[in-house]
């Protein structure tokens, strides 16, 4: 079994304003675009883009799925990983400063708070997309193809798996993610996910 956990710091992924508007459930009004621009200028220097990841063999034994770091019952994940022998497990975060800014603005300006929430979501999603793309390119060389990322809470994959993921990737130490009693991650703009790896068809 492979136990190596890798850490990676990304440079700022390009900002997707359409996504920000989508997460804010907003149209592209001038006034709002201007606010988003101002918030981006203020917040971007405060984000970091950290990922911890590892690669694990998986086995299906009866009902349960052995992920190499935990056993889990989930038909949806099983389907998503059908035909895969390995996975990449990863956790991504843009850091606690995002929460501080969101908290500040939520108090004084719910409008800015809402937009900053959307910016934070876009940032961490874009970070994950960038990481997945990089993995895809890298693993192509090994003759492997990657599946779309799958997170705890999708379908019937239980949120309790977060505990095992955070522990396995030593997230608290490595990239500063911790879980509260409700299994929510802090920093709030964090994502954990599994990427299935399958052999590429010739």
């Amino acid at each position: 079994m492979n136990d190596t956990i890798f850490l990676k710091n990304f440079i700022e992924p390009p900002v997707d304003r359409k996504k920000i508007l989508h997460y804010a459930k907003s149209g592209a009004e001038d006034q709002i675009l201007l606010q988003i621009q101002q918030l981006l200028e203020e917040s971007l220097p405060h984000f970091s883009y950290k990922i911890a990841y590892g690669r694990f063999p998986i086995n299906s034994d009866g009902n349960a799925l052995d992920l190499g770091f935990a056993r889990v019952h989930s038909n949806d994940l099983k389907n998503a990983l059908l035909g895969c022998k390995e996975i990449i497990l990863f956790a991504a975060t843009i850091g606690i400063q995002a929460d501080r800014l969101i908290s500040k603005y939520s108090r004084f300006s719910p409008a800015k708070g809402l937009l900053l929430q959307a910016i934070g979501t876009e940032r961490v999603e874009s970070l994950c997309d960038l990481f997945c793309l990089e993995m895809k390119e890298q693993l192509k060389r090994d003759g492997l193809a990657t599946r779309p990322r799958f997170s705890p809470g999708y379908g019937d994959l239980p949120l309790t798996l977060q505990k095992e993921i955070i522990r396995k990737l030593d997230c608290t130490k490595n990239i500063g993610i911790s879980l509260n009693q409700q299994l929510l991650m802090t920093p709030s703009k964090s994502i954990t996910a599994i990427i299935g790896l399958e052999e590429r068809k010739a």
Binding site: K25, S26, Q31, I32, Q35, P110, A111, L114
Partner: peptide
């Protein structure tokens, strides 16, 4: 009117 606009008006 979108939510961010409602909030800006409220502020």
């Amino acid at each position: 009117v979108y939510l961010p606009q409602l909030l800006m008006a409220a502020e």
